[in-house]
Amino acid sequence: MERRNFLKTAILGSLTAGLSLKNNLLSAQDKSSNFGNEYDLAAVMGGEPDAMYAKAIEALGGIKKFVKQGQKVVVKPNIGWNKTPELAANTNPILVGAIIRDCLKAGAKEVVVFDHTCNNWQDCYKNSGIEEAVKAAGGKMAFGHEEKYYREVKIPGAKRLNIAKIHEAILDCDVWINVPVLKHHSGAKMTIALKNYMGIVWDRRFFHANDLQQCIADSALFSKKPILNIVDAYRIVTANGPQNHTLADVQTPKALFMSADIVAVDAASAKFFNQFTDISLADVGHINIANSLKIGTSDIDKLRVSRIMMN
């Protein structure tokens, strides 16, 4: 063998080895990072909404794990009522803003926010503070007040809600993030992440007329699941929900729950809520139905939970 050839081979060989080694390293690192921080559910307490969000998303592996470069993202808060943030009838605008900023930082092409409101939509968007927060964060508000914005889809496996009209933003996006607020609900007992699905559907009256609890669980069978469920419990409504009228029904525990598992996050939130108002998980029909439909698990003890106290 000539010396030159030998050298060539040697260099090539070492290069290949180096590259493969590096590849190994990379993949190993990837695995280990996943392994080290792999939590199914994050529970944070004691911080401001945006700071708690940052802690929780870090515990779940960072936003880049969920939102990829160039994706169209929908953030779906609860904007159902013409109420100011202090009354906690809607999702906290600071939290919504923080999520949008993070998604855009992760390279999201656009972030769209909407809700099918119960009160007049303009009032809700404005007085909830969410429209302003979304615009400041670089997101976009979408309309949801007319049937035109909803398209019919089939929900396979559903018991009652077999067909529903779902908002076009959800149907057309790459990923969506479910951002409910934790509230007492006089009809559905609790309103958390599963109940927040009612805001992506046009005909809400159908739910009420056809076994509310079953329909809420059915709606979560819709094939495009939220990649994350972030429950705002900075301020919570403990009685007379969902549309409470006085501050007497509002507590400020400053908490946040986050998981890709919608049933788990609802179960965790319900258990947290039980410390304020006496409602056991067994009372909340739709969470139990969703659990038995295997949309997720309400058995939090089986999950890896990151509990973070910020103060």
Partner: peptide, 24 residues
Amino acid sequence: CVVITDETDCGACQEHCPAHAIKM
């Protein structure tokens, strides 16, 4: 009322009442 006829949860009226005139 569907709560009586269907024995299911509803509360849509209470939800929409802005005046505390409906209690469940």
